[in-house]
Amino acid sequence: MGTRWRSLRRRILTPDVSETSLDVRGFHKKSPEAQDLLETVGTRFLEGYAYAAEAATVQECADRLDQIPPRFRGFAYEGAGMGFGVRDGLPLGRSDLNDEFLAGPGDPHNYLILVGIGWAMARVPRFAWPKSDKYDPVLRWLVLDGYGFHQAYFKTKKYVDGQFQEARFPWPADDPTGYTANAIDQGIGRAMWFIGGTDPEVVAGLIRRFPETRHADLWAGTGLAASYACGGDDDELVKLGELAGPHRPSLAQGAAFATEARVRAGLVVPHTEQTARIFCDMTPEEAAEVCLSIKADLGPVAMTDGLPTFEVWRRRIANEFVHLGGVSR
């Protein structure tokens, strides 16, 4: 396929960067610095998406992604996961680009790519959704995290203001537990950090509007976003932990997830040290080891003790942090 056609495909498929503007989205603006950070995250995400939309091979895409500064590279890989996901869903084209991406140069960024696939699912017809059994049986729930983030980010009135919750979500097809809503809520909670403009009081206020039964998942997502993207100083991050109240361990669990993703990909930056210290009372490497050792103990199985292994993993990580702030779980 020629360069001209690939450039045209990029222009056709890639959303306009204005979609990431806080003004366009109507999100809270805490400060010019926070606004610039969140909009840069969006810009880098779309940059990764565009690389995937245009690339002739997944390696060509990865080579371009690896030129992006470490702080934002993961977001670009997430965008590329969405870009390849959209291409996988197009008629008359390949349907295994993300498979090749995950098995090859995208492997160190697998968490982010799976999240990006969830973004793509929100944009392509249901019949074009990927089969869930092609993904790691534990990590596949991250796809629904991505779907939840997308819906909260672009359909904020429905999913955040209206606290809409998906019922009987059809992916994965082999879930007997109805866990999909929990995984989607983690993504909605992750979007809260963006919608609330990284302002702890605003974010906590958004979460409080939801039924209490959804708070743990929402706080886990918020902890993930606050740790991966950051956007707060020490006092603000400490305040976020205080506002989480009884869900402080869930906040720490999300933070540990984010930290492990950065450690795995070699993208640890100063704010990773900051958030690991404040949310987990650990170094990034220690927080990552908590995630990895518990996952290794559980093994690569879909279900554990009648629950998705992903949920058991999350709960056991959270239990490692029940001592923080004297919180019980």
Rank of each mutant, 00 (worst) to 15 (best):
R87N: 11
R87A: 05
R87V: 04
D88F: 01
D88N: 00
G89T: 00
G89C: 05
G89I: 04
L90D: 09
L90Y: 01
L90E: 12
L90H: 06
P91G: 00
P91S: 00
L92C: 03
L92W: 09
L92T: 01
G93M: 15
G93W: 14
R94D: 13
R94K: 04
S95M: 14
S95T: 14
S95D: 15
S95H: 13
S95V: 14
D96H: 07
D96C: 08
D96Q: 11
D96N: 11
L97M: 12
L97V: 04
L97Q: 02
N98T: 12
N98V: 12
N98H: 10
N98Y: 03
N98W: 10
D99I: 15
D99L: 14
D99C: 10
D99K: 12
E100S: 05
E100Q: 11
E100P: 06
F101V: 08
L102R: 10
L102T: 10
A103T: 05
A103C: 06
A103M: 11
G104R: 07
G104L: 03
P105C: 08
P105W: 05
P105T: 02
P105Y: 02
G106E: 03
G106L: 03
G106C: 05
D107G: 07
D107V: 04
P108D: 02
P108Q: 00
P108T: 02
P108Y: 07
H109W: 13
H109T: 04
N110P: 09
N110Y: 11
Y111K: 10
Y111G: 06
L112A: 05
L112H: 06
I113Y: 06
I113T: 03
I113G: 02
L114Q: 10
V115A: 09
G116S: 08
G116H: 06
G116T: 03
G116I: 09
I117G: 12
I117W: 07
G118S: 13
W119V: 05
A120Q: 05
A120H: 04
A120M: 04
M121N: 02
M121H: 04
M121G: 02
M121P: 04
A122F: 08
A122S: 07
A122T: 04
A122L: 11
R123F: 04
R123V: 09
R123C: 13
R123A: 06
R123M: 13
R123I: 07
V124Q: 11
P125I: 02
P125E: 09
R126F: 12
R126D: 14
R126Q: 15
R126A: 15
R126C: 13
A128D: 09
A128S: 13
W129I: 00
P130Y: 02
P130R: 00
P130C: 07
P130K: 01
P130A: 00
P130T: 04
K131E: 15
K131M: 15
K131L: 15
K131S: 15
S132N: 12
D133T: 14
D133E: 14
D133G: 10
K134V: 15
Y135F: 15
Y135A: 07
Y135D: 11
D136A: 08
D136H: 06
P137H: 01
P137M: 08
V138Y: 13
V138H: 02
